[in-house]
Structure formats: structure tokens, C-alpha cells
Design a binder for these strands. Structure first.
Lengths: 197, 197
DNA sequence: TTGTCAAGTTAACAGTGTTAAATCGCCGTT
DNA sequence: AACGGCGATTTAACACTGTTAACTTGACAA
């Protein structure tokens, strides 16, 4: 029966429609405004249909978060292929993270339980985050082959710097221009990367 | 009538009981579990009574946030009086911020809309935050008297570093020991402060 | 005894996540 | 053609949420 695969295709379509709608509401009205009924209304279904695709709201948010990490991961892999110099690599990856957060702040928010986005599933157990973390640590390692613990520390440092600046830049959006914030970000990352050698 | 001031005292008591209860629930069950009815139950009143003291949940959260910033401010002022060396001052203030966040993570969360704590009132419009921000920028200024814009940049850098490490340390709590995180924090802050001169 | 006023409660509204029960239409069987 | 089953979908319900209007209750003054 080809109807079966057609059904499957339609299933995947409404599934992704749910995800897209959730992101859309979040972008326009914030994560606090994202509700199952609102999603259902937008895709012309009743609320319980959403539960045919996601067992709970938490699981839906977790999937969106994971998609986010995976998108970031692919971006990182692209950059890794593009450059050979580890300094350049880490710098460009940092810039990519900034771009990602600025272009899709609502995704960045759900990835870090920020600003009303709240998913009970622990962020660190997201497989996407693990993948990203491994990628960055590898880059740092090819840079300075030190003990695993040192790499962990440096990774924590890099991530803190990046995440701190991004989340504060988003928070201060209308009292410190994003251009200025980005400039400080690039300078700080550059300093950090130079400091590694 | 002394009954009037007695009434006022009792008003202030139940008012602070509301705030304490909200913090208590947040500490034990997370901010998502904080509801007006639960607070009312805990202080043996019905829900509408809470609205006699706070016009909305948002305003209650905003007050708790502001209290947090003010506590931090007083801590900073204590340290400012204690030391004369600007390097020492900034370092000790950073450590104080770390201690504050680790001892009262739920307050730190509501101060930054983190992890399910969500208050619609913009963080930057909180008077407490403004006060803290001025204090730190003053310290940096007595350190390196530069243009206002440079100070703003350095403040942004310091705050990002501190906030980034604190929020990630809290997030990674059970896969990276707080001792290790604190060690990296102190080293990074030290480096930042030294880099200022 | 009646009236007033404040304190506090109940009841309601619209919304939330979530689930069980009911509906409805289509397809194959008797 | 009538019946049965089945899958897709909806309705209705539960226990919550923030918030407000309307009500009760009790004390004190005239």
C-alpha cells in the first residue's frame, strides 16, 4: 500500500507543523505564551492531537532544544571543515554561536531555559548539547593537548564567556546596542583564543 | 490609637511572610511551583488576600528580585569600605556575587529570569540593578579612569564573565563539581582584574 | 437594635497541561 | 444492503493557574 507511506509523510508534516508553530508563537509572543491549545488552533486541530505527536509539552520543548543544538553542531562542523587553523576555528565557531543566538533568540532561550522558556528535562542530558560540547573540546584539544581536566576547564571558560555575553547582550538589548555588544564579544573571544597558545 | 500602628506592624509581618513563603517554595520546588494559592495556603489565608499586598504576581517577583539586587548592593558596599585596593575590591565583589548565587540560587534565578523564574517586568528597570551597576562601574573607573563608553564595555565584560560562569556552574551542578567551577571562576576573575591595569 | 465598615472568604472567569470517553466516517465482511 | 470494527478526531472533564467581583461575617458606633 502506498497509502501507508503517504500517511507517514502527512504525519511528519503535521509533526513539523507543530514544532514550527511553537517556535513561531515563541518568537512573536515569548515562550510564556506557547500553549498546547494555541498550537492546536494554529494547525487546525484540537489539543489532544498534539499529544499524538509529543507525549508532553516538556518533550516538545526538549525536541526543539535538541534541534537547536544540532543546528549549532552542523554549523560547527561546517566551520571545522572550512578552516585548519585552530585559532580561526574556535573564533569562527564563537561568532557562529553569536549569530545563531541573535537570529533565533527564542531557540537560544529554550536551549538554556532563559526568559520564560522552561523545560523540565535537564539541559545537559540533551544529546545535542553533548555533541556540541565534544566538538568544541576536540578543537581546544588539537590546540593545546593537555589533560582531560584542563580541557574541561578551558571549555567551561570559553562557554561561560560566550554564554554570558550572549545572554546579557539579549537582556540589555535596548540599553546597549547589539553592535557594541558584538564588538566587545569579538574582542573578548579573540583575547581568549590568543591566550590559549 | 496605638491599634493603628499595631495593625501596620501586622500588615508588614504578613507582607514579609508572603515574600518569605514565595522564596521558600521556590527554593524547595523551583519557581515554576510558586503559585498565589500555595503562598496563601502557607500563610493561612485565602488567595485574594495576597492581592491586598501585591497587585500581581509579577510585582511580587519584581520585589523579590529587587531585594536580591539590594542585598548584593549592600554586600558590595561593605567590601568597598573594607578594602582600598581597587583590584582587591573588584575581586572580592566578584567572589561575593558567586557566594550569593550559590547560597541563594533561587534568588539569583529570579534576578535573571533563569530556570523557570519568569517576571514580565524588565530586569534592567529594577532600581536595585541600576544601583549595583553604578557601584561596579565606579570601582572600575577609580581603577582605570577612561571614557564612559570604555567603562561600560569593561563592566559588560566583567558582568558577562561572572554571570556566564555562575549560570553555567549552576546548570552543570551535577556533572562538574561546584568546587572546580569556583576554582575556574576565581582564576578567570583574577586574570580579568589583573588585565585591567 | 440598627447601620456601617473593614477583613476575609467564596465563587467565578478565562486560561493552562493532560486524559478518558465519545463521536464520526470509512472499509471490509456477511 | 446492513453490520461490525477501526482509526482519526473531538468533546468533556480534571486539577491547576492568575485574577476579580460579590458576598459573608464580625465588631464597633449611634
Amino acid at each position: 500500500m502506498e497509502t501507508l507511506e503517504r500517511k507517514q509523510r502527512s504525519r511528519e508534516q503535521t509533526r513539523s507543523a507543530i514544532v514550527l508553530t511553537a517556535k513561531d508563537i515563541a518568537r512573536r509572543e515569548g515562550w510564556q505564551a506557547v500553549s498546547i491549545r494555541k498550537i492546536a488552533d494554529a494547525i487546525d486541530y484540537s489539543a489532544p492531537i498534539v499529544y499524538e505527536y509529543f507525549d508532553s509539552k516538556d518533550i516538545l520543548l526538549d525536541e526543539i532544544r535538541n534541534d537547536g543544538f544540532r543546528e549549532l553542531q552542523h554549523e560547527y562542523e561546517r566551520i571545522k571543515k572550512l578552516y585548519r587553523d585552530p585559532e580561526k576555528r574556535l573564533f569562527e565557531m564563537s561568532v557562529a554561536q553569536w549569530q545563531f543566538a541573535m537570529h533565533q533568540p527564542e531557540i537560544y532561550q529554550v536551549m538554556h531555559n532563559l526568559n520564560g522558556a522552561y523545560c523540565n528535562r535537564p539541559i545537559c542530558e540533551s544529546s545535542g548539547m553533548e555533541a556540541v560540547s565534544i566538538l568544541i573540546r576536540e578543537i581546544i584539544f588539537t590546540f593545546i593537548p593537555k589533560s582531560q581536566e584542563s580541557i574541561q576547564k578551558l571549555y567551561f571558560e570559553w562557554w561561560s564567556l560566550s554564554h554570558g555575553m550572549i545572554s546579557l547582550a539579549l537582556m540589555l538589548r535596548d540599553r546597549q546596542s547589539l553592535e557594541l555588544s558584538e564588538q566587545v564579544y569579538r574582542d573578548s573571544i579573540r583575547r581568549f583564543v590568543r591566550g590559549l597558545r
